[in-house]
Design a protein around this nucleic acid. Structure first.
Lengths: 205, 205, 205, 205
DNA sequence: CATGAATGAGCATTCATTCAT
DNA sequence: GATGAATGAATGCTCATTCAT
């Protein structure tokens, strides 16, 4: 799959640089996740990208569009990673543990609930639908892993949809900081606790 | 010859009505919970209360103040209700079940995590602390019920702090709506599922 | 002029205290002089007085009224003090010197020019007139002292109105602070310099 | 193959017209001088410029910034004009006279004292400093003219800083309007009187 | 592709003023 | 005399969006 010669058409001036649109999406995703939809202004995104607001509007026609694309692409990325982490021959419990460790380390909030609060007033129904679909597909990946485990007899015959959500819900405990801003446990211990509790919850205690 | 410190000024015109300050707090709490801090404007609150913005500022000197008071007072209310619902002689599992039903019915989001994202940029550290403290105290109520149950031998010797958070995390599953905007289960079924899973999770499966 | 027995009518409850209206006027005068008309709010005045805004409105029907009364009463007070300081048998130069020292010490700004800038947009023509009249009368006192000195042959036959304004203008140099916030001279030296220059200016160098 | 750093964006539509930023500065300077800092609102400036408030904020990020820039630029302009008017071979007295006539005609208030009253509460210390520095430099120009005259033996050995301030103070008399809103003298006569008095004051009577 | 300039609508907050008690 | 509550109008400032270049 060679392609060392100059590709056809106008080449990128700066070979090393990511295309602007990607930069914008990455920066926006980070900012939205960190602060929320409303609080992040197009100016903030522009400044963080080192471009002008107008440039952002060249690539994304509204803030809602940029947000929707950010969220959807992120969900897709997470889904892919989930797929990767959950598909192996190891026992489910091990796979879930690995998955927990990875996600507790990433400060990313998989939980979109909080975003929908803001989004409902600002996004179009199509945009909300688009994000919800992406979210749903992400949950489906977990569901499938659970389904498979049920078939294999690894876990009892639970409702896989509920169990998928329960898993994600349990993961969010990892983000909690107490009044002194300390987490309940260090990450590794947290993953152990979560998986232990979850595994029990599935009825395999 | 008694001498009242200060004349009393304009008292309630309508003896029966709720004082304005209370109305404002109630309305604000509802709006903030429903939409989030940033999206709710003081104009929104004012209009929903049927008073002018200036009236709100007469009672609460900033939006951040109003928000903080809303959240803290709400947490206190929830804590009281928790105390009430969790303190009885019935077995813990039953009490948790009752509690779940009540909270799944109330659309209230006990989960403050989402608020802190916005709040961090808009509230003073004192205000954030105040809210976090109120949240912590709320969790403490659950912790105490769990502790008691451990002493009585009702449940195994789990970490009560973690278990308290796990319980609240599980409850949030109830708020989930899928891409077709349907909940996973009807409320009663949901409570059953949650309690069953949680009880298993505690190690009593 | 005895009056130790209780006077007739409702007596002051608190014998020692100044009547509220006077307190308000004094406090308002100080605040207006220090910060200017616009910047000082009725709330500021109220708080500094320890009463409510409504109380101020009980005594003064508008902010413009309060300001006008403040300025006029102040001009009257200054005029009286001027009269006192300028009327004696000592030579004019000495009297002016004493006067300078007194006014350079008081941080009060005799110069109303700055106030009229703001006032013009906020005060009624009658109110502006009232203040201007009070100011004029203050200048008249100096004029009379100069007139008398001319008649006595103490100073040459200058235009007394111009000379009065020149004197006040010279006094304002005393308020100047340089970029390091230092005055040009210490107060005593400043008075010497001003009087020396002024006396020369009158044509008696 | 030249590569311009950045594309140029929207350039001037109307080649002949003054750039918006200059218009804003000019209009703002006039309004601030006429009415004072507090009383002039950004809306006022915007309306007087025929643009929206947002446009002003595009060019100046705060009102305090606009004010500071207005004052500093004005002081610089005045200083330049002073330099021009005071630098010639004619005798100092003549130059001062010309200068007086010019400044009495311009209704501009060289005297910043009144502004600092308001400014102290509204501007940052850096901004106050910036304005004070510009003012100081303006006085320095007069000082230098006086210094030179002292060296040439045109005037006695006075303190040039004090004399510079005395000169500006005398000029402010020209702005005075009595209770009937009349100036003390017509402008030409006023200049004569001021210079005569000032020249005497310097000790050359 | 990207920009600088401009804008309308909105937002948190302030303030002089009113009024029933 | 004095007050607590309420308000309309403004004020400084932000922000998503547009547009000509």
């Amino acid at each position: 799959m060679e392609q060392k010669q100059r590709p056809i058409g106008r080449p990128r001036q700066d070979e090393k640089a990511k295309p602007t649109k990607e930069i914008i999406l990455d920066v926006a995703t980070r900012l939205f996740l960190e602060h929320g939809y409303k609080i992040v202004s197009m100016d903030d995104v522009a400044q963080a990208c080192g471009v002008t607001k107008a440039t952002i509007y060249y690539h994304y026609s509204t803030k809602a569009d940029l947000f929707t694309d950010s969220m959807v692409k992120m969900m897709i990325r997470i889904r892919k990673q989930m797929n990767h982490l959950l598909s192996s021959d190891r026992p489910l419990k091990e796979r879930l543990h690995t998955f927990s460790c990875v996600f507790l380390q990433a400060t990313i909030d998989i939980d979109l609930k909080s975003f929908f609060k803001e989004a409902n007033t600002s996004l179009s129904t199509e945009q909300i639908q688009e994000i919800k679909d992406a979210e749903e597909q992400m949950y489906t990946v977990i569901e499938e892993a659970l389904n498979e485990a049920i078939l294999k007899g690894e876990i009892p015959n639970v409702n896989p949809k509920f169990a998928a959500h329960a898993f994600v819900a349990m993961l969010t405990i990892g983000n909690y900081k107490d009044a002194q801003n300390h987490p309940l446990f260090p990450i590794e211990k947290m993953a152990d606790q979560i998986i232990e509790f979850y595994w029990n919850g599935l009825g395999k205690g």
